[in-house]
């Protein structure tokens, strides 16, 4: 880790100016991933701008049922928030199934969105990685890729996005609020926030230098919707997802799916919105067979490798079970 300067920002404008001025300056919020990566030598900033004292730490429930979550709200407080638990239980479940109690007390909402992949090669500076160092090659294709993505991958990178929270937010049609360097606000739907790796896997989001995430807005969920977050992992806690499914389901009285939104974790290079599955199911009766077919259709473009091919069947099973369960809950 190189020496770095440290500044505690007292207002967003000063913070943004400092960060925009240097490619080697970064914002420091909870630090749970940044400090980790700095120790590994993956990230080598020379200036940390501590933004934890900026005023983005509130949870505002809107009269329409939506919510604006400040970027600095830690996961523990967000998952503990009664309004979130009542109206966005999939988000609370996702948060509670991620990391550990002591990580969640510090890890912020904005930082969670910007988590870097846990691909072992990205984290090991002695091995090639296109994401960490462009055009050095991808070690995972021939190496360990069991935990990596099958959707959205390229020949350059198959690193998965590790966040649980963002998967739930993807299903909840979240909008990321930014403050540009010039002070102007910008709102980006979360599903447009992340870039696919393509041939530039080091570029992960639409953020421009100095952009500061100020919050995440969740619109009110569909009327009468039920939702859940289901995560499959190697141990029963404190592990990243092999596959996770955030499902938001609203049915009509006749049992057809009026609205369905699915976020997938563990399978995509970004928090994955299962648009194809949604398209095939919307307005249809969710029979077992149709659910499975629709779930499988999402993976038509998947590029599985030997170690992670199991994720496709696993995801199909979990999507099917999760939606079936929510539909059942709606009927009750």
């Amino acid at each position: 880790m190189k020496p770095f300067a440290y500044e505690r920002a007292t207002d967003p404008g000063a913070a943004a100016t400092l960060v925009a001025d240097s490619t080697e300056a970064v914002y420091l919020a909870g630090g749970t991933n940044l400090v980790d990566l700095m120790k590994l030598g993956v990230t080598e900033p020379t200036l940390l701008v501590d933004i934890t004292r900026l005023p983005y730490d509130t949870i505002e429930h809107r009269p329409d049922g939506g919510v604006l979550i400040g970027a600095l709200v830690p996961g523990s407080r967000l998952a503990g928030d009664l309004g979130v638990r009542e109206r966005f239980p999939a988000l609370a479940e996702a948060l509670l199934s991620g990391a550990s109690g002591q990580l969640r007390t510090v890890a912020t909402t904005g930082g969670n969105l910007l988590q870097r992949t846990r691909c072992v090669y990205f984290q090991d500076v002695t091995k090639p990685c296109n994401k960490r160092r462009p055009e050095t090659g991808c070690s995972a294709v021939q190496g360990l890729h069991r935990d990596l993505a099958v959707l959205g991958t390229s020949d350059f990178c198959l690193a998965g996005h590790p966040s649980d929270m963002a998967v739930a937010m993807a299903a909840l049609d979240a909008v990321v609020h930014l403050r540009r360097v010039n002070g102007s606000p910008r709102a980006v739907p979360l599903n447009d926030f992340y870039l696919l790796p393509g041939d530039t896997p080091h570029r992960e989001t639409v953020l421009q230098p100095g952009d500061l995430i100020t919050g995440v807005e969740l619109p009110p969920p569909p009327e009468g919707a039920a939702m859940s977050y289901r995560k499959v992992r190697d141990r029963w806690s404190y592990a990243f997802a092999l596959v996770s499914v955030a499902a938001v389901v609203a049915t009509d009285a006749d049992g057809t799916l009026r609205e369905i939104r699915l976020g997938l974790g563990g399978v995509g290079t970004r928090p994955w919105r299962a648009r194809e599955t949604e398209r095939l199911l919307t307005g249809r009766e969710p029979t077992e067979e149709r659910l499975r077919e629709a779930a499988r259709a999402e993976f038509a473009s998947a590029r599985p490798l030997p170690q992670n091919a199991f994720k496709i069947d696993l995801a199909v099973d979990v999507i099917t079970a999760a939606v079936r369960d929510l539909v059942g809950r709606q009927r009750r």
Partner: peptide, 24 residues
Amino acid sequence: ITVERVRAGLPAGPPAGFSAGPST
């Protein structure tokens, strides 16, 4: 004994009537 090793021997697809539920 990982999920993929167990699943490799299980019949394809979840048995009907099984609910997803919370995973813990």
